[in-house]
């Protein structure tokens, strides 16, 4: 009777433990592999982004240099000659200096200054 009783009861415990241990070990292993794969994948992304960043920096530099070239006095002079715009250096009396407006008092003061400049140039 005892034998019967023993054979029909708790044999599931160790089996369950073994399954749990296997599952944990497997999931740890899977997690490790997944993590490694993620690290590699992120590493690749970092590399790709580094390349893109480098490319953008280079492009930015190229455009900056191009802008500097287009704005250089020699280039502007050459363009003026090419376009034949007949531009000449303005005489001081042709130049009106505008004051920067800050606050009401300075607005009033600046207006009077501007008007005096206009009177003088008339």
């Amino acid at each position: 009777m005892n034998r019967k009783k023993r054979s029909s009861t708790v044999r599931f415990g160790p089996a369950l433990k073994a399954v749990v241990i296997c599952l944990v070990t497997c999931s740890l292993g899977m997690g490790y592999v997944w993590q490694k794969q993620q690290i590699n994948s992120l590493g690749q992304q970092i590399k790709e982004n580094e390349i893109v960043l480098e490319e953008l920096k280079r492009e930015n530099k190229r455009r900056g240099d191009n802008l500097a070239y287009l704005m250089s006095p020699q280039e502007l002079d050459a363009r003026l000659r090419q376009l034949n715009l007949d531009l000449v250096v303005p005489k001081p009396e042709q130049i009106v200096v505008l004051q920067e407006l800050r606050g009401i008092n300075s607005v009033y003061r600046s207006k009077t200054e501007i008007s005096s400049v206009r009177t003088a140039s008339r």
Binding site: P90, P92, E93, I95, V97, S116, T119, A120, S121, R122
Partner: peptide
Amino acid sequence: SYLGIKPDLVPQGSIASRSGGR
């Protein structure tokens, strides 16, 4: 002209000198 240096002379016959050189 480029640096915008303020003139200290009013040339004879200029618009400014005709208006009294103010």
